[in-house]
Design a protein around this nucleic acid. Structure first.
Lengths: 241, 241
DNA sequence: CGGCATCCATTTTGATACTG
DNA sequence: CAGTATCAAAATGGATGCCG
């Protein structure tokens, strides 16, 4: 059966023809934290229904947004991962996710809502300018409200992996998502979150210093003069200060 | 009836809970070219179905994305327009629209597809840094493949209005959308599009000069050295050159 | 005419069961 | 693990009717 389209010659409507159906963009979000197996997705995306998930993955594959790959032995399982076009799509979702954080999240987790630390980190990671990490590498273990994920900084590349680091981490950051959201909204700055103990950081001081340097442009310190939260880069649009 | 949600504590999924249903984001796009009446929307959004359109507008109103306003006499008709939060949403759509232009539009208008010049211009307008327009004002009449829309530059503000300017324009730009898409993709630069006659520009030279200055950072000239199209700002993400 | 509400055929989605 | 088959529930689209 032919796909339903809006029949408009417009970038937005064509995008929505491709990725505007239910679940599609959340599947793309999952791939932002690395390659995933079919059952990884079915596991995380509660409520999706196995038929629909299979259909969506097939569409994403046909549209050149993900590719299927067989992992080398001994794993030999099949995974899907983003193509370059898929990664550009993922980047295009960042402002929409930030709009949701700023205007729809409200800092409160609704009853029954699931949470995964990588959902927060993948968008944060896309905002980071990895330039200052040239020649360095570090693994940061995040634990946000029962959920764990890792942020890897390896020589100008920032990646996110769900769960606990198998080989240990250079530093560990622990906090609750209310604090994380407040940081993202700009109502709290990283230094005072650490000072007040709302976020705890342990590990290699040099690694932590690098992390703070990378996060500084993304989560700017609150403006002292106006009391207004600094939100400089959170819009991620083309305007510059 | 309760709205269907993804039940995930994540900015993206919350955004999609609010604006991820069919037609919603295209309605938001319509408001990017100014306030609209109910029937304006029904007219442009072919296929939407009057009930669904009413439902979507009500949801957008409840969610603080649009407001209803009664136009002052003698018009006295009701219009809807974006709130500040709604405008932030619109800005967040720009990268998604550009992804669609770059990867899904392909320069060809499919049979049966409708086209409106304002669909192109609203996203272009959001990319423009209006700083250089301080103290100046100009109206540019665009005619792209049978469809007309105006770009207004008034002292640091860029707005788009559908149709023909009632009071005339300072300059008129005419072209076909194949050329416009090529410009957006970076395969063609503004100067050679004008030189080759694929786009014609008439009117006040000073106004045209201002337009070119405003568009230059958005549609950068093709790199002479590599032959690679310059696409600097088209991603509209946080990375800088 | 603008601004919807109602009714109904068609699609899409969700949940469960089942298979190589 | 990686899906397919089946069926009920919900969302969508189209036509039509109402009311100031």
């Amino acid at each position: 059966m032919a796909r339903r389209t809006y029949n408009q010659f417009c970038g937005l409507s064509r995008s929505l023809d491709i990725v505007g159906e239910r679940w599609t963009l959340l599947i793309v979000r999952e791939f932002m934290s690395g390659p995933k197996r079919y059952t990884d997705l079915a596991d995380v995306l509660r409520g999706v229904g196995t038929t629909l998930l299979a259909t969506r993955i097939r569409q994403l594959e046909q549209d050149g947004i993900v590719v299927r790959r067989t992992l080398p032995p001994p794993a030999a399982s099949q995974v899907y991962e983003l193509t370059p076009v898929g990664h550009e799509l993922a980047q295009a979702l960042v402002p929409l996710a930030i709009w949701g954080i700023r205007h729809q999240l409200g800092g409160t987790r609704l009853p029954g809502e699931t949470y995964r630390a990588e959902w927060t980190l993948v968008f944060l990671a896309e905002l980071i300018d990895a330039g200052p990490s040239a020649g360095r590498h570090a693994t940061y273990q995040f634990r946000i409200d029962e959920s764990a994920a890792q942020l890897h900084v390896h020589d100008q590349k920032v990646t996110v992996v769900p769960g606990e680091a198998a080989d240990g981490a250079d530093a560990t950051l622990t906090g609750d998502f209310a604090t994380v959201v407040e940081l993202a909204l700009g109502g709290l700055d990283t230094a005072s979150a650490l000072a007040s103990g709302r976020i705890t950081a342990d590990g290699d001081p040099a690694a932590l210093e690098l992390l703070l340097k990378l996060l500084e442009p993304v989560l700017p310190a609150r403006s002292v003069v106006t009391g207004e939260p600094g939100r400089r880069d959170l819009n991620a649009t083309a305007d510059s200060p």
